[in-house]
Measured scan of single mutants.
Amino acid sequence: MQIFVKTLTGKTITLEVEPSDTIENVKAKIQDKEGIPPDQQRLIFAGKQLEDGRTLSDYNIQKESTLHLVLR
């Protein structure tokens, strides 16, 4: 499924993921596309910060959901 990741600069990254993918996994995909190390990434969905060990389905993230990427 496709999800979108919006950065603070207003750029939107499109990722191909599975509901069973972990947040860690998603961060690795963002690193592949954008070169941002996962340890600098914070992903936010519905106002919650997403934890590395959880999966997209844990957070009920469905196709075409938009996550927000904050760098630390």
Rank of each mutant, 00 (worst) to 15 (best):
S57I: 08
A46N: 07
P37D: 12
Q40M: 09
K33P: 10
P19F: 14
M1D: 06
N60H: 13
D32N: 07
N60Q: 15
V17W: 04
A28R: 09
T9K: 12
T12I: 12
Q40E: 12
G47L: 05
L69H: 02
H68E: 13
K27Y: 14
K63E: 07
T12C: 02
R72I: 15
A28Q: 12
T9D: 09
T12W: 13
S20T: 11
T7V: 11
S20K: 07
R72F: 07
I23R: 01
T12K: 03
D32L: 08
F45R: 03
E16K: 09
F4N: 13
I30E: 00
I44C: 03
P37G: 09
K48T: 11
L56T: 04
V70I: 08
Q49C: 02
D32M: 07
S57W: 10
K63S: 15
S20Y: 14
F45H: 09
V5T: 03
D32S: 06
E64F: 13
L50G: 01
S57K: 04
G53D: 07
E64G: 05
Q41L: 11
S20F: 08
G47N: 09
Q49D: 14
T55P: 13
Y59T: 03
L71Y: 06
E18S: 14
E34T: 08
Q41K: 03
L15I: 05
Y59V: 04
P19T: 13
I36R: 06
T7G: 05
M1K: 10
Q62E: 08
S57G: 09
R54K: 02
D32W: 10
I3T: 01
K6F: 14
E34M: 05
G35T: 08
E18W: 06
N25K: 04
T7I: 13
K6C: 03
L43P: 01
L69V: 12
A28C: 02
L8M: 11
L8K: 15
R54Y: 10
T66G: 06
L67D: 01
E24D: 09
T14F: 07
E16H: 12
P38I: 12
T14P: 08
E64W: 05
M1F: 04
R72D: 13
R42Y: 12
R42G: 15
L15M: 12
E34W: 06
E34L: 09
P19H: 07
